[in-house]
């Protein structure tokens, strides 16, 4: 890992030909997040509409495992912090620190998915499926779609973890970490809405 002479500023400054001062990648990620917001907003709207029209609605804390859900919330929040730390280490040009924090972020993703699949399996064991009721339909669909997003975020982070060996000095590398981080925070925020919606309300 020798020859890391590039200064942070040189790596971080976007090439001057971008009109907004943002790199294409960063702008693209923000636009992508805008469409993701619409996607989840639609699902939350669906939840509201169907719940308002329902004659009865299970109490989330009685049918779901609140401690596990709360743990998962913490896991994701901590992973967001480690993601930021990975980005900061990138900014500091600290390759080793970067790899540790990014690795922890990915590992926390696995923890989240593990807890989530344990919760799902517990539901399946007592024969609660998406077809059981509209509540479970929404629960499995929305947490499932969120889980897919977690997996996507982990894949991107994993790819960057592997690529960092080769592309640590690439002028766009920091932008990629930033983009991936933005996506990861978004996934985190969605969960912060999902948790109270299904477990507490």
């Amino acid at each position: 890992m020798g020859g890391r002479m590039t200064t942070a500023a040189a790596v971080a400054a976007p090439p001057s030909e971008f009109r907004t001062g943002l790199t294409n990648a960063k702008l693209g990620v923000w636009l992508f997040l805008a469409s993701e917001v619409m996607l989840f907003a639609t699902l939350f709207t669906t939840y509201i509409v169907l719940r308002l029209g329902a004659s009865e609605w299970p109490r989330g804390w009685e049918v779901l495992n609140v401690p596990l859900g709360f743990t998962n919330t913490l896991v994701l929040i901590v992973s967001s912090v480690t993601m930021v730390m990975a980005y900061a280490k990138c900014w500091d040009r600290d390759y080793k620190g970067f790899r540790i924090y990014l690795g922890v972020t990915i590992a926390l993703g696995f923890v989240f998915l593990g807890i989530k699949s344990f919760e799902w399996a517990a539901k399946f064991r007592v024969h609660h499926f998406p077809s059981t009721s509209i509540y479970y339909a929404l629960y499995f669909t929305m947490t499932g779609l969120h889980g897919l997003h977690v997996i996507c975020g982990m894949i991107v982070n994993g790819a960057l973890f592997v690529l960092s060996k080769k592309e640590w000095d690439h002028p766009l590398f920091m932008g990629r970490i930033e983009g991936s981080g933005l996506f990861w925070h978004f996934v985190d925020i969605v969960w912060i809405f999902l948790f109270p919606t299904f477990y507490l309300l």
Partner: peptide, 20 residues
Amino acid sequence: PPLEAAAVLQLMDRVLHTSF
């Protein structure tokens, strides 16, 4: 994206027998 979400929900209805 709203149509994509709606398509996913309809797909759930058809494949996993939910009733959105």
